[in-house]
């Protein structure tokens, strides 16, 4: 399985992203931001890389602010 992570400007949006994704039955998880990336609030959303487009458009619709989507190493 290839994972990716979505970064957010604040923890509020990370939590909102987790909730909205889970409500849609998507498998996601809040994890600490991987070392090679940097995001200040410290937490990001781990997703299945192949679902990134679905999740991104869902979150956009739900007014979640994002700071980038990255594949996990």
């Amino acid at each position: 399985m290839v994972y990716g992570v979505i970064l957010f400007p604040s923890t509020y949006f990370a939590l909102r992203a987790e909730k909205k994704s889970k409500e849609k039955g998507l498998s996601v998880r809040l994890i600490p931001v991987p070392r090679h990336l940097s995001s200040d609030c410290g937490v990001c959303l781990r997703i299945f890389w192949e679902q990134r487009e679905t999740i991104e458009s869902l979150l956009k619709e739900e007014g979640v602010r994002m700071e980038g989507v990255h594949p996990m190493e």
Binding site: C41, G42, V43
Partner: peptide, 9 residues
Amino acid sequence: GRSGHLLSI
């Protein structure tokens, strides 16, 4: 909101 560890989340 200050860190990514379990308890902060």
